[in-house]
Computed example of a mutant assay.
Amino acid sequence: MTAKPEPTTYPETYYAGAYWGARKESPEECAQRTATFLNLLAPTDPFLAHWYKPTRALKDARKYPLMPPDVPALTELFRRGANREKGGPAIEQLGFTFWFGNGGKSYDSADLRILCGCYSDAVSNACVMTLPTLGHSENADRVISAAVLTGAVRSMALAWEPDWAVAMSHAHRDMDEAEGKADMWLGWVTYLARHRGTVPPLPAPVRIEPVEGKGTLIILTPERFTVANPEHVALARHVRGLLGKAGLMQPVST
């Protein structure tokens, strides 16, 4: 009898994202927020300190640096990214979309996708950063850490003033969605804006940090959070339950 092949296992992949409701902003305002975010993000790790304008070919990825942030150049990129029907005029209420990366290759890269200036009830604004892949990147083990991701989420909170933000694995997000918790996610690192309410006391090893009067960071574990660790999963569910009882996990009204 031929032995069945062992199932292929893949490392968890991680990302960070900030989300906020309807907020009408101009390309200039979106560019200024982006510049603020990139300047705040840069000190968290050298890997996140270099960003480049989008290019058609990967070989050209490092030809057009965006650091230090050039607000007029960013403004023009947002203006070009006005959402529209193909061949039609810009749809003002859907804001501006802009993608760019840090010049890395394949699994050893970070990318940013920003939707800013949207004031439609149907779509939320967001700044989402994909991260390098563990086991395939010389930078991932350092970047995917509590210290760096806490700094990244804090930078998002200060620059974008979102309703909430999170750093987590896609596997953890998928688990939340499968359990019917797709309104907002509790990640390894989570930011909740002050207007959402007061964060209650949470059990160890959870750490709570204020963000300059704007809101609160919640860091579940000092070590890397993974769904492969049942203690991590149980802790996340327990903390989510406590935050839910405090009324902090409700969907954002746009």
Rank of each mutant, 00 (worst) to 15 (best):
Glu138Met: 02
Leu131Met: 14
Cys116Lys: 00
Thr130Asn: 06
Met129Arg: 11
Val123His: 09
Thr133Pro: 02
Asp141Met: 00
Phe96Pro: 02
Asn139Gln: 15
Leu94Arg: 12
Trp99Leu: 12
Cys116Pro: 00
Asn102Phe: 09
Glu138Lys: 10
Ser106Ala: 13
Leu134Phe: 03
Gly117His: 11
Gly101Phe: 07
Ala110Lys: 07
Thr130Gln: 01
Gln93His: 11
Gly95His: 01
Phe100Tyr: 08
Ala140Trp: 02
His136Thr: 01
Phe100Arg: 00
Ser120Ala: 15
Leu131Pro: 08
Gly117Arg: 08
Cys116Ala: 01
Gly104Arg: 07
Asp141Ile: 00
Trp99His: 14
Leu134Asp: 03
Asp121Phe: 02
Thr130Asp: 09
Pro132Leu: 03
Leu134Lys: 01
Ser137Cys: 08
Lys105Asp: 00
Asp121Ala: 13
Phe98Ser: 00
Cys127Ile: 11
Tyr119Phe: 15
Phe100Asn: 01
Pro132Cys: 05
Gly103Asp: 14
Cys118Ser: 15
Ala140Arg: 05
Asn139Phe: 13
Trp99Thr: 13
Ala126Gln: 11
Glu138Cys: 00
Asp108Lys: 09
Pro132Glu: 04
Phe96Met: 02
Ala126Arg: 12
Leu131Arg: 08
Asn139Thr: 15
Asn102Gln: 10
Ser120Trp: 06
Asp108Phe: 07
Gln93Lys: 14
Cys118His: 00
Cys127Pro: 02
Ser137Glu: 02
Asp141Cys: 00
Asn125Arg: 07
Thr97Val: 10
Trp99Ala: 11
Val128Trp: 03
Thr97Tyr: 12
Gly135Asp: 06
Thr133Tyr: 07
Thr97Cys: 07
Glu138Thr: 08
Tyr107Glu: 09
Ser106Trp: 10
Asp108Cys: 11
Thr133Arg: 11
Phe98Arg: 04
Pro132His: 03
Gly95Lys: 01
Gln93Trp: 09
Phe100Thr: 02
Ala110Met: 10
Tyr107Gln: 10
Arg113Lys: 07
Asn125Met: 06
Asp141Lys: 08
Ile114Asp: 03
Ser120Phe: 05
Cys127Val: 14
Ser106Thr: 09
Met129Ile: 14
Thr130Leu: 02
Pro132Gln: 05
Ser124Asn: 15
Lys105Gln: 04
Gly117Pro: 06
Asp111Lys: 08
Asp141Glu: 13
Thr130Val: 00
Thr97Trp: 06
Ile114Ser: 01
Ile114Tyr: 06
Phe96Gln: 04
Arg113Cys: 05
Ala110Asp: 07
Gly103Glu: 12
Ser124Asp: 15
Gly101Val: 07
Leu94Tyr: 13
Ala122Gly: 11
Gly104Ala: 11
Tyr119Pro: 08
Thr97Asn: 13
Arg113Ser: 09
Ser137Val: 07
Leu131Trp: 05
Ala126Val: 10
Tyr107Val: 06
Ser106Cys: 03
Cys118Ala: 15
Gly117Asp: 10
Thr97Asp: 11
Leu94His: 11
Val128Ile: 13
Asn102Trp: 09
Val123Asn: 06
Phe100Val: 03
Ala140Asp: 05
Cys118Phe: 00
Ile114Asn: 03
Ser124Trp: 14
Pro132Gly: 04
Phe100Pro: 02
Gly95Trp: 01
Thr130Arg: 01
Ser109Val: 12
Ala110Trp: 08
Glu138Leu: 07
Ala122His: 13
Ser124Phe: 15
Ala140Met: 03
Val123Leu: 14
Asp111Ser: 15
Ser120Gly: 10
Ser120Cys: 10
Ile114Gly: 04
Gly101Ala: 15
His136Phe: 13
Cys127Lys: 03
Glu138Pro: 06
